[in-house]
């Protein structure tokens, strides 16, 4: 039997909202340590990796490892029947379940839904836990804003790191521009900008993916960008007390 109860069901809704335009069908993996998900977009440019640890749930039980194939679109239809303040419980009964049950609980109502599961043949990529040569922490809303602004000018956005900070730049048909974000150690943790740069990087990415990734900014006030030259970038949103959502994006490489 598998059971996972989110005290804050709105959090689960935010996670689904954050990934819904990146991936269509996903395998949700559950085991004794928690729930995870790894899926790639159809063009193999972006990868979503979610980890939710059992300790972060109000209630968690998983006797046997389980793979649940879900359509994100259908999952969202069911989640629309829940309130943002509901507690949400996911549950399966059988060893090889064909449905995933949802209980939405508020002060005055309890709703039950069953979502049909699918069998998905999805390859899991072994993404190594590597050291990155530049790691930047900055406010997630600031990152969202910069991507939106620069995305107006060109479809590719450049990111350059140095000991002084991080610079975003674009060069398009209409002209070019850059935004430098200064390092600060303000007392407000959500406004802090930190750069750990062992080796500077200069990378280029398709901005439309960033604009999709930025839907995850509702999960955390800070975003962590981990980069190495000519390697996929990782954008991480820490989900407080529960785990993290990591979004990987392949760069455009200078030929």
């Amino acid at each position: 039997m598998f059971e996972a109860k989110f005290e804050d069901g709105g959090l689960f809704k935010k996670i689904v909202e954050a990934i819904k335009e990146l991936v269509k069908n996903v395998n949700l993996e559950a085991n004794g340590t928690g729930i995870s998900l790894q899926a790639m977009d159809t063009s193999h440019v972006a990868l979503v990796a979610l980890q939710l640890n059992e300790k972060g749930f109000k209630k968690y039980r998983c006797e046997k490892s389980l793979t649940m194939g879900l359509s994100i679109e259908n999952l969202q239809k069911i989640l629309k029947c829940s309130g943002n303040d509901d507690q949400i419980t996911l549950r399966t009964q059988d060893e090889e379940p064909t449905t995933l049950s949802f209980t939405f609980e508020s002060k005055n109502r309890i709703s039950e839904f069953q979502l049909n599961l699918m069998s998905l043949d999805q390859e899991q990529l072994g993404v190594p836990d590597t050291e990155y040569s530049s790691v930047v922490r900055m406010p997630s809303n600031e990152f969202t804003k910069i991507c939106r602004e620069l995305g107006n000018i060109n479809e590719a956005i450049g990111i350059e790191t140095s000991k002084e900070g991080i610079k975003f730049y674009v060069k398009g048909d209409i002209g070019e521009g850059q935004v430098s974000v200064k390092i600060n150690d303000t007392e407000k943790p959500e406004e802090r900008v930190e750069c750990e740069v062992d080796e500077p990087v200069n990378l280029s990415f398709a901005v439309r993916y960033f604009n999709l990734f930025n839907k995850a900014s509702a999960l955390s006030s800070q975003v962590i960008l981990s980069m190495s030259q000519d390697q996929p970038l990782v954008i991480e949103y820490i989900i407080e007390e529960m785990g993290s959502l990591k979004l990987y994006l392949a760069p455009k490489i200078n030929d």
Binding site: H44, P128, A156, K252
Partner: peptide, 14 residues
Amino acid sequence: QFYQLNLKEFYKNL
């Protein structure tokens, strides 16, 4: 000239 790196190939070839 830029080309778009493919994530699947990148991680497979590691």
